[in-house]
Every structure is written in C-alpha cells, then in structure tokens.
Design a binder for these strands. Structure first.
Lengths: 217, 217
DNA sequence: CGATTTGTTGAGGAATATCAAACTTGGTGG
DNA sequence: CCACCAAGTTTGATATTCCTCAACAAATCG
C-alpha cells in the first residue's frame, strides 16, 4: 500500500522537478500529525519529498499567530533554503511519509549540477507560489480567497471528491482570515450550490464555472 | 552630476550583488515618470540596474487594480526572470536612469557563471522581498503597514529627511490599502508626533522607537 | 460513552472601503 | 509675483466587510 505513495505525484506542476534522484536515494521518514519536521532557525541540510500526507510551512510570530506560507502535497519537494538556515518551520499537516536526503548525498549521487538544478527549480516554484499567494491576499475578499483555495485543490485532484488535508484553522492561517470567516464562506458557497461538503474534510465542486467566477481576481 | 548616480548605492543590502559588471558594461537608458520599462508578458532579455530614480513592478488586473509587487531604488537590480517572459510589468516611478545589459552581453563579458550568480542572487532577494511583503499583508493592520513602510524607507536612507519616491496611490497599491486609508494613517502618525511631513513627499521620523513598536508584527 | 477538540452560527463592534467634497501643491501663463 | 488650473492629497460621512466574543453542534478520541 505504502509503495503506491512513491509513485509519481497525482498532480502536474509546470516546473520540471529533479525528484527521481530523491526517489532513488531518499531515506523514508514518518512524521505524525502536527509533528515538527524542522524549526525556524534550524540548519537547512536536508531535502524532503512528500511521499504521502501533507506538510505546512509557517512563520511563528510573537503574538501567537502563525501565518502559513505554503502547503506541500505528495510529489512536492521542500526544505531547500537559499541560506543555510530555515526561515520557516515545517510541520506535518497529517501523518505523513517523507523521502529525505542530505545535500551531500544528492551531490554524491547526482553531482553538484543536479543539486543546483533542484535548488533552482525549487526556488522558482517557491517564488511563483509566494507571488500567487500574495495576489490572493492583496486583492481578494474572503469569499474570493476561499473559493480560489477550494478551486485550486479541485484542480490538482484527479478525484471529484476532494479531501481537505487541513482543518479550518490552517486554511484560515493560509488565507489571512479567521476560522469563523472561513466557515461562514464555506457555508455560503454551499447554500449557493457551488460546492458541497460531505463532511468538513471532504467536498465536491458542484458549479466549477461559478466558483472560478468568484475566485477570479 | 549624473556620474554621481553611478556611484555605489546609498543603502546596503544583505545580499552580495554582482552589479559591478552591470556598472561596467551597462548601457544608460532614461525613462520618464510613469513610462513603461517593460510589460507583462514581454520577453525578458534585459537586466536593469537602477542608477537614479525609482521603479515599481506591478501586476495589471482586469478590474483596473494594479497591486504593486516591489519598489526598486538606486543600486537595485531588476528584470531578471526565471522564465523567458516577464510576469510583472515595470514602470518608472519617477524620471529615472537605468543601466541596461542583455543576458548575452553579461555572459560575453563576465561568463556564464557571472550571469548565473546574478540570476540566483536576484531571485533570492526577490523571494525574500516577496515573503516579507506577504507577511506585511497577512498580519498587519493599516497603521502597522504604513508605519513599517515609512520605517523601512527611513532605515535605508542616509539622510534624516526622507524623500518619498512615490505618491499615495502607489503606497496604497503596495500596502493593499486605499489612498484614503494611507492618508488617514499618515495624518494619525503625525498627530501622535511619530513622523512629521514637511510636504507630502518629504518626511522626518520623530520617534523611531514608537514607530518601530507599531510596525512590529 | 463521556470528554475534548474542531467546526458552525449569531450578535455586536472595529477596521477599512467607498463616495463625496474640500483642500494643497506644483506648474503655467498672465 | 500672482492667479489659475490640474493633479494629488486630506477630510468627513456612511457603508461594508471581517473580526471578536459567545454559545452551540459535530466530529474525534480515549
């Protein structure tokens, strides 16, 4: 069963990912839900590939808030930093299985060039993600943010029934909203028959067009 | 007089910038206020160094809004994209003078290596900027955003009297606020004697500590 | 099954946007 | 130098959105 998780990721990303290497030489590591994978300020030696489950990266702030930078799903690579320190913390969103390798192992196996390429691709993707995230926050209402978020999940899911990897609090932290507002928007979208939640972690898109219409910036 | 503009930038950035090369081989180009330097979707062949004046990069959106991604000041390099197309537009914030070079010219003069380094450093800086900007938008109030913005300018200015390179609308677009709100916050900060505006484009920080206290996330 | 966490709903309030008007500033020409 | 004009900025009144606090419901876990 677990072996299946190591198969190519179910979603396509525009950027070529040199993750075959990681697939080959990575060491399996399991993390329990909410377990810390690495902390803010820790040395950044390892490279991670999500095999199963999901991961969030976030900033911890003095006032207790914890804005989420990004969610990583199976097939995604994370943990590569430009400096030698992690600027964000990473935690398991759910129980998850990661493939882990050290930078030196990657160099030993694939050469300096492979590492550079991987680093570059990861950084490019991070920049794109962050810019997209920024746009979402600058110029969207709560309804637009939630719609866009759900639509994004739907687009990368092969299955019509979509599993939410995260709870309302994580969504709220990512979208820059409170859990109450997220909840209200979801209820609202349901009342208008744009989406339908089977349970609070499972939903189906009912009217993709209308949803996209709302989400558009 | 102009020659002075080509001197090292007045502000320090944490990232080493391979801009000597650009200083040497760059071609001077002047742009008038609000002139487009490049547009969204255009081919990204050129690398720009701000010699004097300032530049904004922004997304143009269907509804007429134009969230600003970043402001570039003398000494800053911009225009390097990871793909071969500009994802943002760049415009002159004020009359400005740029040093411009093609990628191929940089390779010819400094080698592939130099270009790679420059590209990497620029991307790293962009990523940091974007993350910072993101944090500003996720978790700050209008007062905090404006305070942080003014403080940021103050920190990189050698002069106690700080020139605002942009008008209220540009500030608002960058901070994710309306011009009215920006204006009100500035008035408010003045009433509390944290800053003092000589004119609407010139200010002095009166109580740096208090300003930093407000700006802190 | 009870206990605990997580999610939903409601009422009220705070922050920011919107719309409209007045005021400043900077430039231009008399 | 001053009057005038246009653009940019500030201020005020009102509307809207989202947050806060509180109660309740549902799901999860031992």
């Amino acid at each position: 069963m677990l072996a299946q998780s190591f198969a190519p990721p179910p979603r396509a990303t525009p950027i070529a990912r040199a993750d075959n290497l990681l697939q080959r030489i990575g060491v399996r590591m399991a993390f329990a839900k909410d377990e810390e994978i690495y902390g803010q300020g820790e040395a950044a030696n390892l490279i991670y590939l999500v095999a199963s489950g999901a991961v969030r990266t976030s900033h911890f702030m003095v006032d207790g808030r914890r804005p989420i930078d990004h969610f990583y799903y199976p097939g995604d690579i994370f943990g590569l930093e430009v400096g030698d320190e992690h600027t964000l913390a990473a935690e398991a969103l759910s129980d998850c299985l990661l493939l882990v390798a050290t930078r030196s192992a990657l160099v030993a196996e694939g050469g300096e060039r492979a590492l550079q390429t991987m680093l570059r691709d990861t950084m490019v993707r991070d920049l794109q993600n962050t810019r997209e995230h920024l746009m979402l926050l600058v110029c969207k209402t709560a309804r637009q943010r939630v719609s866009g978020f759900l639509l994004g999940l739907a687009e990368r899911s092969p299955d019509p029934v979509i599993e939410l990897a995260m709870g309302r609090q994580d969504m709220a932290d990512y979208l820059g909203l409170t859990i109450e507002t997220v909840s209200r928007m979801i209820t609202d979208l349901q009342n208008n028959h744009l989406v339908e939640f089977q349970s609070c972690r499972q939903f189906v898109v009912r009217d993709r067009k209308a949803l996209a219409g709302i989400a558009a910036c």
